[in-house]
Computed example of a mutant assay.
Amino acid sequence: MSVIDAYLGAAGQAAALLEAPEVATAWGQPSALAKMTVGGLAGHLAYQILSVSSALQVCDSTVQESPPQEPPIPLLEHYARAAWIDVPLDGEVNSGIRAKGEAIASQGASWLAELASTSFVEQRTKLAQCSGDQAVFMPQTGWALRLDDFLITRMLELAVHMDDLAVSVGLAVQELPEEAFDLVLVLLARLAARRHGQAALLRTLTRVERAPAAINAI
């Protein structure tokens, strides 16, 4: 199965979660994430789908875009450069992420669920016209990724924030499709090994008596 198919499986689950009545009922309540309402968290989750719609202009032969200034960077380099990793909760980056989530959700649960669902349906058609090697420029970072790598970043975000949102509203956490989970798991394992070292990761998975206290990937 392709990365595109794996993304569509995860995005479809996220779109369905956004339609859950429990999400709408708890909209203005605090979420499982500090300083973020359920609505704001839902907005941040929906953004992971909406950002793909913006990126898909690279697949449209009728749209004349300037090529990226630099070639796509490797996926792990993307996370090495990421401004949001290890920044304080009240820092400018995280405050901006929370504010953007709240802004996206500002028109309510039903509107957001419909927007995410519509975007997802359109993506199923548009992604069929795409190649995973096409470069996707991300204005928010200033660099480009291959489309496949960009979709893997979205799957990681979808996996993490579907869990956050389900926990926030008391729903059982739905397992990702196997193909999507495998891609997310490999990325997280590589990030964790880079942060803590291979031995720490191996010991956490196989030797609990020698496992470190933390093995977080991000």
Score class of each variant (00 low, 15 high):
62 T>E: 01
41 L>A: 03
118 T>E: 13
61 S>A: 08
81 R>P: 10
74 P>E: 05
78 H>C: 06
82 A>D: 13
32 A>H: 02
142 G>S: 00
78 H>T: 10
140 Q>W: 10
55 A>K: 04
141 T>E: 07
84 W>S: 10
44 H>A: 10
44 H>F: 11
40 G>A: 08
110 S>E: 14
92 E>G: 05
107 Q>V: 09
37 T>M: 07
60 D>P: 01
96 G>W: 13
69 Q>T: 13
97 I>T: 09
99 A>W: 08
83 A>I: 15
54 S>E: 15
131 S>D: 10
102 E>V: 07
133 D>E: 09
101 G>V: 00
47 Y>R: 07
106 S>H: 06
136 V>A: 02
97 I>L: 04
143 W>N: 05
38 V>W: 02
109 A>T: 12
57 Q>S: 13
102 E>I: 08
86 D>E: 15
62 T>G: 00
94 N>G: 13
130 C>I: 02
42 A>V: 07
100 K>T: 15
100 K>V: 12
65 E>H: 06
46 A>Y: 01
106 S>C: 05
70 E>D: 14
121 V>H: 15
31 S>E: 04
73 I>E: 03
141 T>A: 09
132 G>L: 03
54 S>D: 15
90 D>E: 11
57 Q>L: 14
74 P>H: 02
41 L>I: 08
127 L>N: 02
112 L>C: 06
40 G>Y: 03
111 W>Y: 04
80 A>D: 11
126 K>Y: 09
124 R>A: 14
125 T>A: 13
96 G>T: 08
119 S>Y: 10
73 I>R: 02
77 E>S: 09
117 S>T: 14
115 L>F: 12
130 C>R: 01
133 D>Q: 05
32 A>Q: 00
79 Y>L: 12
44 H>K: 05
112 L>R: 02
75 L>W: 11
73 I>K: 00
33 L>T: 03
83 A>P: 08
48 Q>S: 15
42 A>P: 03
110 S>D: 13
132 G>I: 07
114 E>L: 06
71 P>F: 10
66 S>V: 15
51 S>W: 02
138 M>S: 02
45 L>P: 01
143 W>H: 09
66 S>A: 15
103 A>S: 15
99 A>T: 12
100 K>D: 14
130 C>V: 02
43 G>Q: 03
67 P>L: 06
69 Q>S: 10
85 I>V: 11
139 P>V: 12
